[in-house]
Simulated assay, not measured.
Amino acid sequence: MIRMFSVVGLLFVASAAGAAEPEFSSELIFPLNPRHNHAPGVAELADGSLFVTWYRGSGERKADDVEVLGARRPAGSTTWSEEFPIADTPGFPDCNTCLMVDARGRLWVFWPVILANTWESCLTRFQVADQPVGTGAPNWSRSDFILLKPADFGERGRAELDGLVAKLPIPPTGQLKGAIDDARVKLGDKLYQRLGWQPRCKPTVLPSGRILLPLYSDTFSISLMAISDDEGQTWHASEPLLGFGAIQPAVVRRNDGTLVAYMRENGPLNKIRVCESADEGETWGPVGTIDLPNPGSGLDAVRLQSGAWLLVYNDLVEGRRSLAVSLSDDEGKTWSHTRHLERQESGQYHYPAIIQAKDGRVHVVYSYFVEGGKSMKHAQFNEAWVRAGK
């Protein structure tokens, strides 16, 4: 009876999505600002309001004045609140943000603190608000670091690296050879295996209750998952997703339980990277590509209530002036519909964060860089709007 009800419910949602009229609106969350504003997270709170975070400062990892800010949009409103402080580690940059609302309605914000003005030196922090609904900054009930001890991946990493080097048309020399030799040494070093993991995309909560927080390392240009099976009390590391140049994973789950991680391309392939797990994120298969472009920029993904998947990404091989949303009806095998949130001659529209609200509307927040300054932009639309594309 429960299974039949679930199937009927899904069919109803899918039918309603297909019958709806396309809806779309967008707005800046705050006026263009001369400082560096980047890397948002977005979440829907229990009362239907939206909560957004990003970081702001005079730069990124090399600027010690970088802090995390937030803003709210009440349910039913089209106006965002004034920004308010979320986190500011004195003397250290606080960077990429992502958000999660857990099964108890608690709001989690994750971000890296940069210890020595290099991405390789970061540690991931988080804060939790038990009662996040309200105005201004929430009262944070818990604050901590995520400290990980991955199983030694030095041997596997060096084998993967050697395989890539063997495919080069000529043996590496000079600076490239030095970088490869340095990476071979660091791959077996406990400090570099444990330090430098940072978030970008939102956590995925599995039906078992397991939380997967996607992390990546600019030390090696690889990814892994921080995993919690006790509602975020403790965390352990998955095996890494060993595809050099594949970072900032966004994770979605197929009906058969397979997890699919889509990743930013940080190498020469110019295509979105992909990897799968059959054991709830503990281990991951080989890293490949899908037939969608990526210019070395962040992406995000979400499974909709209808069962369709959405992927938001920069659909160019160079530059970030075009930001697309693509829809899949077959769990990522093909992407049949595409619409553009931005498609301009100049500017950068990137680092998107995507969620679906309880009312079925999709919300994307992304960094908005134009000649007059920088902001966060929010776009709201329904599934029908995406399906109206090609």
Rank of each mutant, 00 (worst) to 15 (best):
Ala63Lys: 12
Ala63Asn: 09
Ala63Gly: 05
Ala63Cys: 07
Asp64Cys: 04
Asp64Glu: 11
Asp64Leu: 06
Asp64Ala: 13
Asp64Arg: 13
Asp64Trp: 04
Asp64Gln: 06
Asp65Val: 01
Asp65Cys: 01
Asp65Met: 00
Asp65Ile: 00
Asp65Lys: 00
Asp65Ala: 03
Val66Gly: 11
Val66Ser: 13
Val66Trp: 13
Glu67His: 09
Glu67Gly: 03
Glu67Val: 14
Glu67Phe: 03
Val68Pro: 01
Val68Ala: 02
Val68Leu: 11
Leu69Asp: 07
Leu69Glu: 14
Leu69Lys: 11
Leu69His: 14
Gly70Asp: 03
Gly70Arg: 04
Gly70Val: 00
Ala71His: 05
Ala71Arg: 04
Ala71Cys: 11
Ala71Phe: 04
Ala71Ile: 08
Ala71Gln: 02
Arg72His: 11
Arg72Pro: 06
Arg72Leu: 12
Arg72Ser: 10
Arg72Lys: 06
Arg73Val: 01
Arg73Asn: 09
Arg73Trp: 01
Arg73Gly: 01
Pro74Ser: 12
Pro74Thr: 00
Pro74Glu: 09
Pro74Arg: 11
Pro74Ile: 00
Ala75Lys: 12
Ala75Arg: 11
Ala75Cys: 04
Ala75Gly: 02
Gly76Lys: 05
Gly76His: 06
Gly76Tyr: 05
Gly76Cys: 07
Gly76Ile: 04
Gly76Gln: 03
Gly76Phe: 08
Gly76Thr: 03
Ser77Tyr: 11
Thr78Pro: 00
Thr78Met: 06
Thr78Gly: 08
Thr78Cys: 02
Thr79Cys: 00
Thr79Gln: 09
Thr79Met: 01
Thr79Asn: 02
Trp80Thr: 05
Trp80Gly: 02
Trp80Asn: 05
Trp80Cys: 06
Trp80Val: 04
Ser81Asp: 14
Ser81His: 12
Ser81Trp: 11
Glu82Tyr: 03
Glu82His: 13
Glu82Leu: 12
Glu83Thr: 12
Glu83Ala: 14
Glu83Val: 02
Glu83Arg: 12
Glu83Asn: 13
Phe84Asn: 07
Phe84Leu: 11
Phe84Tyr: 15
Phe84Lys: 08
Pro85Asn: 09
Pro85Ile: 09
Pro85Thr: 06
Ala87Asn: 10
Ala87Ser: 15
Ala87Val: 05
Asp88Ala: 15
Asp88Ile: 00
Asp88Val: 02
Thr89Arg: 12
Thr89Tyr: 14
Thr89Asn: 14
Thr89Gln: 15
Pro90Asn: 07
Pro90Ala: 11
Pro90Phe: 05
Pro90Gln: 08
Pro90Cys: 10
Pro90Lys: 14
Gly91Cys: 12
Phe92Ala: 11
Phe92Asn: 06
Pro93Cys: 13
Pro93Ser: 04
Pro93Thr: 14
Pro93Ala: 13
Asp94Cys: 13
Asp94Lys: 06
Asp94Glu: 07
Asp94Gln: 10
Asp94Phe: 04
Asp94Pro: 02
Asp94Val: 06
Cys95Phe: 12
Cys95Ile: 15
Asn96Gln: 04
Asn96Met: 01
Asn96Cys: 04
Asn96Trp: 01
